[in-house]
Measured scan of single mutants.
Amino acid sequence: SHFELRVGTITLHFDNISEELAEELEKLAKNGVHADEIRRWWEEWLK
């Protein structure tokens, strides 16, 4: 499923992401983690 995450002024787009993972990314964003860090985390997870 597709997921969009708003982090400050940036909107990150994720394809084929589980609800659980989407929730984890939302938690990171709410805790003030920068969009670049979240994207890096996601790319690492995909490997």
Rank of each mutant, 00 (worst) to 15 (best):
S1R: 12
S1Y: 08
S1H: 15
S1Q: 13
S1M: 15
S1K: 13
S1N: 14
H2K: 05
H2R: 08
H2L: 02
H2E: 05
H2V: 04
F3L: 09
F3Q: 00
F3R: 01
F3N: 00
F3M: 02
F3V: 03
E4G: 00
E4P: 02
E4C: 05
E4V: 06
E4S: 01
E4R: 03
L5M: 05
L5F: 03
L5C: 02
L5S: 00
R6L: 09
R6N: 10
R6M: 10
R6Q: 15
V7L: 08
V7I: 09
V7Q: 02
G8V: 03
G8L: 05
G8H: 02
G8K: 02
G8N: 03
G8R: 01
G8Y: 05
T9D: 15
T9L: 12
T9E: 14
I10A: 05
I10N: 03
I10F: 03
I10R: 02
T11W: 07
L12S: 00
L12D: 00
L12C: 01
L12V: 03
H13S: 08
H13V: 14
H13N: 05
H13Y: 13
F14D: 00
F14H: 00
F14L: 03
D15T: 11
D15M: 11
D15I: 11
D15C: 12
D15A: 09
D15R: 09
D15S: 12
N16K: 04
N16P: 04
I17Y: 02
I17L: 04
I17M: 04
I17T: 02
S18W: 03
S18E: 03
S18V: 04
S18P: 10
S18D: 07
S18C: 04
E19Q: 14
E19D: 11
E19T: 13
E20P: 07
E20F: 08
E20A: 11
E20Y: 09
L21S: 05
L21G: 05
L21C: 04
L21I: 12
L21N: 05
L21Y: 03
L21A: 09
L21P: 01
L21E: 08
A22S: 06
A22E: 08
A22V: 12
A22R: 13
A22T: 05
E23A: 14
E23W: 14
E23K: 14
E23V: 11
E23I: 14
E23C: 05
E23S: 13
E24G: 05
E24N: 08
L25T: 00
L25E: 00
L25D: 00
L25V: 04
E26T: 15
E26S: 13
E26V: 14
E26I: 15
E26W: 14
K27G: 09
K27I: 09
K27V: 09
K27L: 11
K27P: 00
K27A: 13
K27M: 11
L28W: 13
L28R: 04
L28C: 04
A29W: 06
A29T: 05
A29P: 02
A29H: 03
A29L: 04
A29R: 04
K30C: 06
K30W: 08
K30Q: 11
K30N: 11
K30D: 07
N31Y: 11
N31Q: 13
N31P: 06
N31S: 12
G32H: 06
G32E: 05
G32S: 05
G32V: 08
G32F: 08
G32L: 07
G32K: 04
V33T: 10
V33K: 12
V33M: 15
H34E: 14
H34P: 14
H34V: 09
H34A: 13
A35F: 07
A35N: 03
A35L: 08
A35K: 02
A35D: 03
A35W: 07
A35S: 06
D36S: 09
D36K: 06
D36A: 11
E37I: 08
E37V: 10
E37A: 10
E37N: 09
E37H: 09
E37Q: 11
E37M: 12
I38V: 06
I38C: 02
I38F: 10
I38L: 07
R39S: 08
R39H: 06
R39A: 07
R39V: 15
R40G: 07
R40Y: 06
R40V: 06
R40W: 08
R40A: 12
W41N: 04
W41C: 05
W41P: 00
W41I: 12
W41A: 10
W42Y: 14
W42R: 02
W42A: 14
W42F: 15
W42S: 06
E43K: 15
E43T: 14
E43W: 15
E43R: 15
E43Y: 15
E44A: 15
E44M: 15
E44R: 15
E44W: 15
E44T: 13
W45F: 08
W45E: 04
W45M: 07
W45Q: 08
W45N: 06
W45R: 11
L46W: 10
K47L: 12
K47V: 13
K47F: 12
K47A: 11
K47W: 12
